[in-house]
Simulated assay, not measured.
Amino acid sequence: MAVETSRRDFIGMAFGGFAAAGGVIALGAMKKTWDPLPSVQSAGFITVDLSPMKEG
C-alpha cells in the first residue's frame, strides 16, 4: 500500500526541515558568542599570592 504525500504534507515537512536547520545555525552562533576571544584565551591565567595578607 503506497502512502500518498499531499502538497500540504510536503510543505509542512519542508518548513520543519528549514526550522531545524535554522535552530542548528542559531545554536552554533550562540556557542561562538559564548566562547572566549582568542586574545583572552591566549593570555592565560594570573596567579596572585595572598599569603602576605593579614586576616581581617
Rank of each mutant, 00 (worst) to 15 (best):
G56Y: 06
E55S: 04
G23C: 04
L50V: 02
S51P: 02
G56D: 07
I11S: 03
D35N: 10
Q41L: 13
T47I: 00
W34K: 11
S39Y: 09
K32Y: 10
D9L: 12
A21F: 09
E4G: 15
M53K: 03
T33Y: 07
F15C: 12
A14M: 13
E55T: 06
Q41A: 13
D9K: 14
D35E: 12
T5M: 13
G17V: 01
K54I: 07
V3W: 05
V24K: 10
F10E: 13
M53G: 02
S42N: 04
R7Q: 15
A43D: 03
S6Q: 05
L27E: 03
A43T: 03
G44F: 01
P52C: 07
M53V: 10
S51I: 02
S39L: 09
A14D: 12
F45H: 04
M1F: 15
G22I: 02
F18Q: 13
P38C: 05
W34A: 08
F15K: 09
G16E: 11
F10G: 11
G44P: 00
A21H: 06
K31I: 06
M13T: 10
L50Q: 00
G56F: 11
P38A: 06
G22N: 03
G22L: 04
A43I: 00
F10K: 14
G23Q: 04
D49S: 01
A21L: 12
L50G: 00
V40T: 09
V40W: 09
I25E: 07
R8K: 14
A19W: 13
D35M: 07
S39T: 12
F10C: 13
G16K: 11
A2K: 15
G22F: 03
V40D: 11
P36L: 01
G56W: 07
P36W: 02
A21T: 08
P38Y: 05
R7M: 15
Q41I: 13
I25K: 10
R7I: 15
P36A: 02
F45R: 02
V40Y: 11
G17L: 04
V24F: 10
V48Y: 03
E4V: 15
W34I: 10
L37F: 08
V24Y: 11
V48L: 05
W34H: 09
E55H: 03
G28I: 02
G12R: 15
L37H: 11
M13R: 14
A20Q: 08
M53N: 05
P36K: 04
G12F: 14
D49R: 01
A26W: 06
A20H: 12
V48G: 01
L37K: 12
A43K: 05
R8F: 14
A43P: 02
Q41T: 13
R8P: 07
P36D: 03
E55W: 03
M13I: 09
L37S: 13
D35R: 11
D9M: 14
P38I: 04
P52D: 06
W34Y: 12
P52S: 10
V24R: 09
I25L: 11
I46S: 00
T5A: 08
V48P: 03
I25F: 12
T33V: 07
A19E: 09
A14S: 13
G16N: 10
T33G: 05
S42T: 08
S42V: 04
